[in-house]
Design a protein around this nucleic acid. Sequence first.
DNA 1: GCCAACGTTGGC
DNA 2: GCCAACGTTGGC
Length: 153
Amino acid sequence: MPWLIKSEPEVFSIQDLKKVKREPWSGVRNYQARNFMWHDMQVDDLALFYHSSAKPPGVAGVAKVVSAPYPDPTQFDVKSEYFDPKSTAQKPRWFLVDFSHVATFAELLPLETLKSDDVLKDMIVSRKGTRLSITPVEKKHFTRILKLARCKI
DNA sequence: GCCAACGTTGGC
DNA sequence: GCCAACGTTGGC
């Protein structure tokens, strides 16, 4: 199943992902988003890499799931902003997967384009007030986005 | 279990 | 900077 993952490019961009080769998707502290990584993502699943709080916001490229889920190490790190005192090694609360870079679009596909496209306008990310940082994406939406971005994988 | 208060996300 | 949406927390 394809996915969409959000990231603020000033914090971590698709270019950063290309540079590091592989990135643990740490810091997700929302149960719905966690459950997608923990229970639903499969190795080799593709994910649209979305730049949020950007000018303009939009889809910047494609990433890929490259690990099974495992506990997010930042939840145990007292110095981390993602430290969770209620989490224990025996019973971790937060899980993540690693992503790697697949493709960077020649041009960012703006949110505005998604909202005005007949096929893409009912994507979760196109809807007003969706804050979820990880969402499932329908195959037809995924295909359409790659086409509009002239991206061949 | 309800719900008010609060905090966060993220587009604009 | 504003604010809509909505998840989380905690008192009761």
